[in-house]
Structure formats: C-alpha cells, structure tokens
Design a protein around this nucleic acid. Structure first.
Lengths: 199, 199
DNA sequence: TAAATAATCTAACACCGTTAAGCAAATTTA
DNA sequence: TAAATTTGCTTAACGGTGTTAGATTATTTA
C-alpha cells in the first residue's frame, strides 16, 4: 500500500511539469503564446487534466508569480548577506533586483507587468511581503540615526522602487537599446536615492 | 456629384465611431474586454467591415495610441505656457503628465503598458517625438548654465521619466491605495530630481 | 471475476481575430 | 431604359482560445 505515496509523488510531478511546460512556452514565444492546449501538448496530456491541478489558467499564473517572488527573495537575501554596512547592502539589493528583472525576464513581466491581469489576489501573498520587508528593513537601517516613522520609510521605499521599476520599464519597451546608458542611469539613480534617504 | 464628399465624410464618421466605440468598451470593461465583434455591435455593423477602416485590431490600438500622445502633448504644452521659469515649467509638465495618466487611464495603459503588444512601429511615430522633445528642451533649459551634452540630457530625462512612470505603475497595481502618500512621494521625487538636474 | 473508483479523453460551448464568398442595392455604362 | 459594374454589407467559415460535461478506459477493491 506504499503505492499511494508513489502515486502522490507522480501527481506532484505532473503539477511541476505543468508549471515547467508553461515557463518553457513563455521563454520561447512570450506570455501571449501561452495556452492551456500548448501546455497539455508539452506534458503529453489533453487540456482538461490541467484543471485537476489548477483551477484555471490564472491559477497557473498565480503559482508562477509566487515562484518568481521566492526566486527574487533568495537572490536578494544572498547579496544582502555579502555586506555589513546598510547602505552597501541596499545598493547591492537593488542591483540584484535589477539583475533579476533581466535574468528572469518572464518572471519579472508576470510579477510587475501592468496589465497582465491576475492582480486581485496578489495582496494576500506572503512571498510578496517577504521581499517588501527586506527592503523595508534595510531602509530603516540606513536611516537608523533618525528613528524614522513607518510612513516615511514607506515613502522612501516607494520612491526607490519607482526609479528602478521605471528604468526597467523603459528598458523593456526599447528593449536593449543603448544598454550602456541605462547602466549609467541606474548607477546615478542608486547613488542619488541613497543620498536622498539620508537627508 | 458633390455626394462623393458626403459619402467620404460618412466613411470618416464610421472610422471615428469605431475608435469611440473601442474606447467606450475599454472604459467600461478594460482592454481585455475589447474585441472586434463588440466594437461592431456598438456601431451596429458586423465585424468584417471594421477591416475596411483598419487593417486589423492592432491598427485600432495604434491609432488610439497616437490619439493618446496628441492629447498628452496638448495638455503638457498648455501647462508649460503658464510658466516662464524653466524649473517651474518642468515641474508643471511632469505634474501634467502625472494627471494625464489618471485622467486618461486607458490611454496611459495603452501608451506605456509594458506588455500590451503593439510595440513595434511605435518608434516611428512623430507624436511620440513631439512629447519627448518638449521634455528634452525643458531639461536643457534648466541646465542652460552648463552647456550640457545631448547624452547627459538624455540620461536626466530617462531618470526623470523612470520615477514618474514607476510611481504610476505602483499606483495602478495597488490602485488608489493610500492616495495621499503617493501624492507626497510625487512631490518629493519632483523636488529631488529637479535639484539633481542642477548638480 | 465483478463492481467500484480513478484517470483520462472526446466533444462541445462560447468566445476570439480574420478571411472568403455571396447577396442585394445603388450606381455607372451602353 | 437595360445591362453591367461597383459598393456596402452580411453570412459562413477557419483555426485559435478557456473551460465544462459526459463518455471511456484503466486500475483498484471486494
């Protein structure tokens, strides 16, 4: 009767296969090309069985979003641990965020793409809070001397995030055009904003 | 034989009706809900005749994008004319940009939405250059004392645009949450960046 | 081996963008 | 005026989408 667990494991496998297949399709042909039937083709099933693993297409998108945040969280945590000074940490973290966006373009598009539907349940995802909190803490550290209010930190965080996200958006629209300049802008912006935090 | 022109005028009318109908649908139910058949319903025709006015759905999207830029251009030009000092002009222009994004949410989403397809021909639209150039000129004015290089202006512009666009993106995702704080951030960012231009 | 259950597929529904063929009315030509 | 042609528009269809219900096949249980 240990076969129950084996079957359970097999079910989990196909769940993972569905997500992997989806990501493969997106990496090849973009989010627009993702369809239930194509996923089914790739895992050598027919479309309806996917609905035994996910309630609908948005369910798949949500799970991939979660995975994206987990990945981002890991990378940011890693680079943070490589520094001790708060401002150095913060610069490294934002740089990691920047790198993530281009290394895992598909994830970033899904996670932050303005009109990519699936924006309702997002608020209740702890994986998002995890990343948010790390930045939050770091900013607090940088401002340690001033005993900053929650609200002020939040504002600084949003401003910070805005610059980076805006730069990335530009870079994605004019994709790859004048890479050197964008790097220059990024550095400028990071320096400027860290200085701004200390004001 | 003056009926030729009357008929021509009627054709132009339905062209406009198509665009208006599209915008109505989007305003009611979002870009996702826009379909050729729904447009046809609204103008009381069947779907295929739309293809006598636009080559395809993207054609409609492109035209609406163009109209959006024309509208944005007008509003920015207006507020610019209300000031004489370059830094005041710049702040007013960016504020107008900000206001445009929320007053004409659908246009803004279409014009700057990261993954809203239709991003190929965009480069060759003079209406885009028009807006770009206005900002470009204003930044140049602010930096007048230093005889800035083209490249530097471009970088400042991108950085500037990034903040605003990023703030807007945030605001759209967490739509309307904590409006007061976002206004605060906007003001902070604008002041900061104008100071940054002068450094 | 027979019944019950699980796993999977086929077929369908209602949409989507787009194209081709056809029809009927209006217009032009002879 | 009658025939030919053009115009305006529709119907029907193709191949695609997400999703659901029902039938079918395979597996497990009694």
């Amino acid at each position: 009767m240990g076969s129950k667990e084996r079957i359970q494991r097999l079910k989990e496998d196909t769940r993972i296969n569905i997500l992997d297949a989806a990501l493969d399709i997106v990496k090849e042909d973009g989010w627009q090309a993702l369809s239930m039937r194509k996923i089914a083709d790739k895992i050598e099933y027919t479309a309806p069985i996917i609905y035994e693993y996910f309630s609908n297409k948005e369910g798949i998108l949500m799970e991939l979003t979660r995975q994206g945040y987990i990945l981002l969280g890991k990378e940011i945590k890693k680079v943070k641990s490589e520094y001790t000074k708060a401002d150095e940490q913060l610069e490294a973290m934002w740089t990691a965020y920047w790198n993530f966006a281009f290394k895992h373009k598909e994830f970033y598009q899904l996670m932050f793409g303005v009109d990519m539907n699936c924006c309702e349940q997002k608020k209740t995802m702890p994986e998002i809070d995890y990343v948010d909190n790390m930045f939050f803490d770091s900013i607090k550290d940088v401002m340690a001397s001033e005993e900053p209010e929650e609200d002020l930190i939040c504002r600084k965080y949003y401003t910070f995030w805005s610059i980076i996200h805006g730069l990335i958006s530009i870079n994605m629209v004019n994709k790859g055009r004048n890479e050197a300049m964008n790097q220059h802008i990024l550095k400028d912006a990071l320096k400027g904003i860290i200085k701004y935090i200390n004001e």
